[in-house]
Simulated assay, not measured.
Amino acid sequence: MGSLARVLLFTWLILPLLGAESGKKRTARQRDEEFMERHNDICIRGSPGVPGREGNPGTNGIPGTPGIPGRDGTKGEKGECMQERLEEPWRINYKQCAWKALNYGIDLGKIAECTFTKMRTDSALRVLFIGSLRLKCKSACCQRWYFTFNGAECNGPLPIEAIVYLDQGSPEFNSTINIHRTSSVEGLCEGINAGLVDISIWVGLCSNGYAQGDASTGWNSVSRMIIEEMPK
């Protein structure tokens, strides 16, 4: 067989194989294109879904290691020493008793009384009686006006009193001096417990044996007693 005959025979055998291979390639490409077209039609973006619920809190992590200790700061200035007093604020507490015209002519005994509510034990009572006082006699005499607290005179620290002393009358006119003057009896008393306190003004004798005179309290005028609780 000649050379030309061999070439023709080889060509006739190989061409069908090349065509088949080319056909296989086209068929695979076509399948890929058809697959992409189908999926492009199917993969359309849908609407967003409902948000999910929050998850349960996680457990605490492992404690960290201690940090490096800090350095001491600079020393501050010395402050002022102040003592804090955890007490209730002071409230004003007072009372007034008044009489239009006592016209009380007794020489010995209680003249008037006023009841007061004391709020605290660690406080003092300021008392004031103001009214007309008179004493008369033909010879030297002395009378004493004083306060009592629940029936006893003040001993914190001393009694609260005032006196009127008259030396003599007027012998040339055979009469006695009869002067009524507005006067006051005032002071502070400590050591009285909290609660109701009966505060009274009395008239009595002076000390040192002076004679009793003719006393009068609250003549023809207003008399008043003022009581005030005060901090110590």
Rank of each mutant, 00 (worst) to 15 (best):
L8M: 02
F10V: 00
T11Y: 04
T11D: 02
W12C: 06
L13Q: 06
I14R: 04
I14A: 10
L15D: 01
L15G: 02
P16V: 02
L17T: 01
L18Q: 05
L18V: 11
L18R: 04
L18D: 04
L18P: 00
G19F: 08
G19I: 10
A20M: 06
E21R: 11
E21N: 08
S22A: 14
G23H: 08
K24D: 13
K24N: 13
K24Q: 05
K25M: 10
T27S: 15
T27V: 06
A28D: 05
A28S: 00
R31A: 14
D32W: 12
D32Y: 15
D32K: 12
F35I: 03
M36Q: 14
R38V: 08
R38A: 07
H39M: 15
H39G: 05
H39W: 15
D41C: 01
I42G: 01
I42H: 01
I42K: 15
C43L: 14
C43E: 09
I44Q: 15
I44E: 07
R45D: 07
G46N: 06
S47Y: 07
P48A: 09
P48F: 11
P51V: 02
G52D: 01
G52N: 01
R53D: 14
R53S: 12
E54R: 11
E54V: 14
G55E: 10
P57V: 03
P57L: 11
P57E: 02
G58R: 06
G58H: 03
N60G: 08
G61W: 05
G61T: 12
G61K: 00
G64C: 11
G64D: 09
G64N: 09
T65E: 13
P66W: 02
